[in-house]
Amino acid sequence: MNALEFLAWVRGPGLDLALAVFALGVVWRLIEIYTLGRKPDLAPPRRVPAASGWHTLWRRMLPPPGMFRRSPVSYVGGYVFHLGLAIVVFFFIPHIQLIKALLGLSWPGLPSPVIDAVTVVTLAAMVVVLIDRVRRPVKRYLSTFEDYFVWVLTFLPVLTGYLAVKHLWLPYTTMLALHILSAELLIALLPFTKLFHAFTAWGSRWFNGEINARRGVPV
């Protein structure tokens, strides 16, 4: 298989397969999670539950008092790489072209040099949060294989994308194919790993705020 055939495979059957696994996993897990339900709460809620849901959604985006000082890397690094990923994934022009081809939606992209800079910052932030995870005893104790695995899954597409654009290490065609392949691995495994928080984070935060308000302890 030559480089162009490899690229054609990842752009064709590979993409098809990855998107199918992604769609299957997302639909399956969303239905499973949201049909779990809970017992009807017969007591009148003590506060306005929905308002508390929205409040918690917002509050959990900010560090609780004192926490920022104790773990600044988690907050700064976490924010930087999440925002960086969002910018790189959704505002790099070829990515928008792909979304347009798949869904018909499109929006203006950012100039390539801006994306380059954001990519470097994102990669650096990911490395920093990984080092922090390994070096801090508590974080290391809490970390499982899956935490490191999803880090690699997320890191590889960003790294290979940057190497491809900058023509580093391998010929562009091969590197582009590896980039697409790594992104396909990411989306195919997303529904079955912690990465599914991309879909559930908001819902579960709202749920927590809602149930706490019913019990009179909105946080």
């Binding site: 054609a8 064709g12 998107l19 299957l24 798949l102």
Partner: peptide, 16 residues
């Protein structure tokens, strides 16, 4: 375009 899928997506609907 290079960014577009190289072939039709045959599995997506079935996968959903």
């Amino acid at each position: 375009p290079l960014s577009a899928p190289a072939g039709p997506l045959k599995l997506a609907a079935g996968a959903v």
